[in-house]
């Protein structure tokens, strides 16, 4: 998702002519174990479902039909729009978008603050932000669940303080899912923005101040536009995985907070599954994500010109 900028092409030709040979293992692995599986999913989304999981090789649009259209219980009514799954997607997009905004609101000031420390303090701060980034996501999500449980430390603490009389029922709510997403992907926002702010030339702030800009005007008119690529990268790094997140909604949410990840997962687990429908939902998710990344890549190459 880093857009490949750090992996960009270099002009050196020391091992000229060996490029394709050296790339063969990467092509082989990613081609066979990622591109082919996704291609198979794309095909399966147009096949007929087998009731115990799997597919029958008969072409049909039934999976997409089921996703978008409601034809009544017996499939004989005139089609109207089916809101269930669109609603799940919409909720996912909304949750992911909100998580992105929250991460940005906390992440930008944090990144800024760290990047403006002196070199020694900066490396300590950066270390502190990096540690959670490397900690197992499952463990982090479980920890969050433990913290906010009805009888968890947070409620105990608030009860002891007398702020509340009865424990807050936080688990299995949209709020808990949101908290989980925000908490999961916050470091993804801080690091790219930090990298951008670190490169920011502070004489530009001095120039702005010299030209009568207040510090907030400088932030709005100079700093934010200059570090925008880092902000956009951070937003994508939070939004995209949040959209397809599974752990936070599964562990912290409930039936009412269903998100795309769980919807897809359900179609492939156990006998109640529906592979073509799960494949179709996966393709729709993939399309949304690729769309976001493509728009970003376009904007980036335009900016480079």
């Amino acid at each position: 998702m880093a857009g490949g900028a750090p992996g960009g092409a270099s002009k050196s030709e020391i091992y000229k002519g060996n490029g394709p040979k050296l790339l063969l293992p990467a092509w082989l692995f990613i081609g066979v174990f990622l591109v082919m599986p996704v291609a198979i999913m794309a095909i399966y989304s147009f096949l007929t479902k087998e009731f115990r999981g799997g597919v029958i090789w008969e072409f049909t649009l039934a999976a997409y039909d089921q996703f978008f259209l409601d034809r009544g219980l017996f499939g004989d009514e005139p089609p109207s729009i089916e809101w269930t799954y669109i609603g799940i997607f919409w909720r996912s997009i909304w949750q992911a978008g909100l998580a992105t905004v929250l991460c940005l609101l906390i992440g930008f000031p944090t990144a800024w603050f760290i990047a403006t420390r002196d070199v020694k303090a900066r490396s300590v701060w950066l270390f502190l932000i990096t540690v959670p980034y490397w900690v197992n996501l499952l463990i982090r999500t479980v920890s969050m669940k433990f913290l906010i449980r009805d009888t968890g430390p947070l409620n105990e603490f608030l009860l002891a303080l007398g702020v509340i009389d009865t424990p807050l029922a936080l688990v299995n709510t949209n709020f808990a899912v949101q908290l989980g997403l925000f908490y999961s992907y916050l470091p993804f926002m801080v690091l790219p923005i930090y990298a951008a702010v670190e490169r920011y030339d502070f004489s530009m702030s001095e120039a702005a101040a010299d030209l009568y800009a207040s510090s907030w005007a400088t932030l709005r008119l100079v700093i934010l536009p200059v570090v925008k690529p880092g902000i956009v990268a951070g937003c994508i790094l939070v939004f995209v995985p949040s959209l397809g997140a599974f752990l936070a909604p599964d562990l912290l949410g409930g039936a009412k907070t269903f998100m795309i990840g769980s919807l897809i997962e359900e179609q492939f687990k156990g006998a109640a599954g529906n592979w073509p429908f799960g494949a179709a939902a996966s393709m729709i998710l993939l399309t949304i994500v690729m769309g976001v990344l493509l728009v970003h890549a376009r904007a980036q190459t335009k900016g480079e010109r």
Partner: peptide, 15 residues
């Protein structure tokens, strides 16, 4: 090479 970062994990998993 960057494709595994771009495909949502749940999609990679089921695929």
């Amino acid at each position: 090479i960057n494709l595994p970062l771009m495909v949502p994990e749940i999609v990679t998993a089921v695929a």
